[in-house]
Amino acid sequence: MAHVCLIPHPLTLLFLFFLVISPEKSFVLAIVSVDTKEQNSVDIIKQTCTTCAAKSTIISYSFCLTSLQVIPVSHATNLQGLAGIAMELALKNATNTISSIVGLLSNASFDPFALACLGDCLELYSDGVVTLVDAIGALLTGQYSTANIWVSAVMEAATTCEEGLTMEGNVSPLTIENYNFFQLCDIALCIINWLSLHANT
């Protein structure tokens, strides 16, 4: 008899998306002084991370700051560039997670149900990589609404994967990977939402 990981339908996970940045309210007021072309890059990183962390219960300020500052190009970029960097980091995270999943699938200590869930995670992240590449293309061409939709969609890979792996009281072997991936996407989404509002003003 086949063992199937019955991961909840994405609609049951929508509550997590209420934790994601809203493109409305006070975000523009908090970051309005940041010029998208000429402002000091270090200030852009710090203010972006401060604002995004304040508006989300998911994003850690220290994680945001550390992640963006370690990339040399982030010190000579604008907000669109920072969003792209966050998405590139998420892409790297996803590819590394795929490698981890492949390794876990060969681990004999997992029961058939856990292996089925890991197989689902592999598929979710593989699809997510393709979607992220498309989202980066949309960002670079100024299609912020499209980028928003695709980044939001790809975040389901992490939430759905984690939900499946923790079913029946199991401990997920990918909690850190899923959480970091979600944060990186949320940082990108935070910036994209502001860029979208800025482009429409």
Rank of each mutant, 00 (worst) to 15 (best):
I149L: 14
C5F: 05
L189F: 09
I191C: 05
I192N: 06
S41V: 00
A114F: 04
S172H: 03
A108E: 12
E88L: 07
N178T: 15
E38A: 14
L189T: 08
L89I: 11
L13M: 06
F181P: 02
A108T: 14
P112F: 03
I58P: 02
V70C: 08
Q39N: 06
L139Y: 09
T97M: 06
V70I: 15
L13R: 01
P10G: 04
I191D: 05
N200T: 13
C117P: 01
L19V: 06
P173V: 02
T160M: 15
V34R: 08
A135F: 03
C49Y: 01
A2Y: 09
I58G: 01
V154S: 13
L91R: 09
G103R: 04
L14F: 08
T50C: 01
M155R: 15
I58Y: 02
D127C: 00
A158S: 15
K92H: 03
E88D: 13
S62C: 06
M87C: 12
F181T: 14
D35C: 05
V171Q: 13
L89V: 00
L6M: 12
Q47T: 12
V130T: 13
I59E: 00
L11N: 12
I71V: 15
A116Y: 05
L19E: 14
N170Y: 09
I71F: 07
I176K: 08
N200W: 06
T141D: 14
G137I: 04
V171S: 11
L189E: 10
I58E: 04
P173N: 10
L124H: 06
L132M: 13
I176S: 07
L184T: 04
S56W: 07
N148A: 11
A53E: 06
Q143P: 03
C161L: 01
G142K: 05
V70F: 09
D120P: 01
L91E: 09
S100I: 12
T77Y: 01
N193E: 13
T48K: 00
W194G: 08
L195F: 07
G84L: 00
A138Y: 10
